[in-house]
Design a protein around this nucleic acid. Structure first.
Lengths: 149, 149
DNA sequence: AAAATTCCAAGTAAATTGCTCAGAATTCAT
DNA sequence: ATGAATTCTGAGCAATTTACTTGGAATTTT
C-alpha cells in the first residue's frame, strides 16, 4: 500500500511550483536540483500533469512550468491520482474500471475496500496546495523549524 | 496504492474461517477450492497469520486452521497489516521504521502521508470479522443476494 | 547561432509479486 | 503399524512493475 515515487516526487514538485507562484515559469532542472530528482524522470511526471491540465508549460530558454490554476484550486488528490491512477486498494473498487466482481464473498470484502478508498480520497481531496503553503509558513515561524532543514 | 493478493486472499480466507467458527479446523485445500487460490500460496499466508497469533493450526489428517480468537476480537486491520506490513503510503510514516526525513519540504508532505495512513488504519481497525459475518447474513436475507453468487 | 529548455519514445536494471516445486514433519483413521 | 491427510519449511522462478537512463527532436530566448 505504498505510493510510488511518481506520487511523492510529483507532489513535492507541485508544491515547489506553488512556492514560486506569480514569479514566472520554473525550470525542471531547478526543481530537480532542489529535490534531488533526475530531470528526465521529472519530465515524465510533468508530461502527465500537463495533459491533466494541472500545469502549463512554457518552452524554450527561460521556459519552464507554472501552475495552471490558483493553489487553492488544486488538490493533493488531483495531483496524486493523475500520477498514480485511482487511489483504491483493489481493482474492483477503482471507479474507472467497471468490471464487477461476481462472487458473493467478494461483496463482503468489497464494502471494506470501498470504505478504504473513500477515506483516502476524502483526505487527499480536502487538502489543497494553498493549505500546504499555509502549513509551510506556519512551520517556518515555529521554533521547531530548524530541525527540519 | 493497491493491496497485494496477500491482503486480499488473506482477508477472504480469514472470513472463511469465521464462517466455520465452532465447527472444528478448516483445511487449507477446502479454502483454496472455494476461493480458487493455490494451497501452497495459502500456506505461506497462514504461516504469517499463525506467527502473528491470529489463527491456530492443527496438524495431521483432519487438521487445519481455526481462528485464535472470537470474530469480534479480530479486526481487518490485524489481518491486513500482518500480511502486507504497515498500512502507510510512504516509508517515512511507517511506524515500525524510525528513520526520520531530514528535509524541510518532506515535512509539509509528511503531514499528508500521516493523515492518509491514519484514515486507512481507522477504517480497517473499526471492522471486525464479526462485522463481516453480520454484513454477510444481511446480504443473504436481502433481495439482491442472488446477484452476488 | 547558441544556449536553454520542453517534448517524446525507447530501453533497462533492480525489485517485487505471485506464485510453483520439493519434500519433511505430524497426526488421524483403520 | 501403515497410509492418507494435512501442516510446515525453504528454495526457486517467471512475469510484472518501478524507477529510472539514454538519445535526440522541437521550440524559444538571448
Amino acid at each position: 500500500m505504498r505510493l510510488s515515487t511518481k506520487g511523492r516526487y510529483g507532489l513535492k514538485a507541485m508544491f515547489d511550483l506553488a512556492l514560486n507562484v506569480g514569479e514566472g515559469p520554473v525550470a525542471l532542472n531547478s526543481i530537480a536540483e532542489r529535490q534531488n530528482i533526475s530531470v528526465h524522470y521529472l519530465e515524465q511526471l510533468f508530461s502527465n500533469l500537463r495533459k491533466a491540465g494541472l500545469v502549463k508549460s512554457i518552452r524554450g530558454a527561460q521556459g519552464g512550468y507554472i501552475l495552471a490554476d490558483q493553489p487553492y484550486n488544486i488538490t493533493v488528490g488531483d495531483i496524486i491520482r493523475t500520477l498514480e491512477g485511482p487511489l483504491a486498494p483493489t481493482e474492483c473498487v477503482s471507479s474507472d474500471d467497471s468490471t464487477e466482481c461476481s462472487k458473493a464473498d467478494c461483496c463482503v470484502t468489497r464494502t471494506i475496500w470501498e470504505k478504504i478508498r473513500d477515506s483516502i480520497n476524502t483526505v487527499v481531496d480536502s487538502i489543497t496546495l494553498q493549505d500546504m503553503l499555509d502549513d509551510y509558513k506556519k512551520l517556518q515561524n515555529s521554533d521547531s523549524f530548524m530541525y527540519y532543514i
